[in-house]
Write a protein that binds this DNA or RNA. Structure first.
Length: 225
DNA sequence: GGCCAGGACACCA
DNA sequence: TGGTGTCATGGC
C-alpha cells in the first residue's frame, strides 16, 4: 500500500486547514466572553483539561469576580480556593496575581491596552511575568489582544507529528516558526487554524485516535500511530 | 485505581 | 541544551 505523504509546504498547510474547515466549519474561538476572561483561561488551562477550567471560571463568574477589579480585590487564599477545580490552584493563584500586577502596571488593568503593541515586544514583556511561558503568552497575544502570533500546544505537536510534518519534540519557538513562515501573517487565520487543531485533538486525534472519523486521514501517513 | 488533560519552572548533568 | 520532578483536580 502506498502511504499518503505530505511535504512541509505552504500548500500542505493550506490543504490541512481546508480539510479541517470543511469538517468543522469556522471555530469562532477562544472560549471566553471577554479578552480578560481569555487571559484568565489561558493561565488556568496550563496542563489542565478545559472542562476543569470551566468549573473554575464559573465559580469566579458566579461570585462576580471575573474581571480585573474583581480578581485584584481577592486575597490570595480566597483566589486559590475559588480556582481549585482547575488544579495546581496554589501555583495558578500566584500566576494570576502576577499577571494582574503586570496588567495594572503596564496597561492600567485594561487588556485592550495590549492591542496596540508590537506582538514580539509584548511577548517579551509577558514572558518576564512569573508563570507565563511561551504558550500562555502567545494565547493571550493572539486570542485576547488579536495580534498575529501562532499558538503551539500539545495538540499542535501531536497532530502535526502524526502527519509526519514535524518530530513533535522541537523547541516551542521552532514549531512556531514552522507555521508562521508558511502561513500569511493573519491573526484571524492563526486563531481559527489553532482552534481547528484543538477541536481535532480533543475529538479525534487523541492518544487512542479515532482515525476512521478523521478529516485528515486522506493526508495522514501514520493512521493509528 | 490508573491514566490523561490546550504548562511553567527549578534543578541537574 | 535536554531530561526529570513538582504542582492537583476531575472525568473516564
Amino acid at each position: 500500500m502506498v502511504r499518503p505523504t505530505l511535504a512541509p509546504t505552504k500548500r500542505s498547510l493550506r490543504r490541512i486547514y481546508g480539510l479541517l474547515l470543511a469538517r468543522f466549519g469556522h471555530a469562532g474561538w477562544w472560549p471566553g466572553k471577554t479578552p480578560f476572561e481569555v487571559c484568565v483561561g489561558a493561565i488556568l488551562t496550563q496542563s489542565t483539561s478545559w472542562s476543569n477550567v470551566e468549573k473554575a471560571l464559573a465559580r469566579l463568574r458566579q461570585r462576580r469576580r471575573l474581571s480585573f477589579r474583581g480578581l485584584a480585590a481577592l486575597p490570595p487564599k480566597r483566589l486559590a480556593a475559588l480556582i481549585r477545580p482547575s488544579g495546581y490552584y496554589r501555583v495558578k493563584a500566584r500566576r494570576l496575581r502576577a499577571f494582574l500586577d503586570f496588567l495594572a502596571a503596564e496597561y492600567g488593568g485594561r487588556v485592550a491596552g495590549m492591542a496596540g503593541e508590537d506582538p514580539r515586544r509584548l511577548r517579551d514583556r509577558l514572558l518576564a511575568v512569573p508563570g507565563i511561558g511561551r504558550e500562555t503568552a502567545d494565547s493571550i497575544i493572539l486570542y485576547a489582544a488579536g495580534l498575529p502570533l501562532f499558538v503551539v500546544d500539545a495538540y499542535t505537536r501531536r497532530v502535526f507529528s502524526r502527519l509526519g510534518l514535524v518530530r513533535g519534540n522541537e523547541p516551542y519557538d521552532e514549531l512556531q516558526r514552522f507555521f508562521m513562515t508558511r502561513l500569511p501573517r493573519d491573526p484571524a487565520l492563526y486563531n481559527d487554524y489553532h482552534a481547528q487543531i484543538v477541536r481535532l485533538g480533543k475529538d479525534i486525534c487523541r492518544p487512542q485516535p479515532r482515525c476512521a472519523d478523521c478529516p485528515l486521514a486522506v493526508v495522514c501517513p501514520r493512521r493509528g500511530v
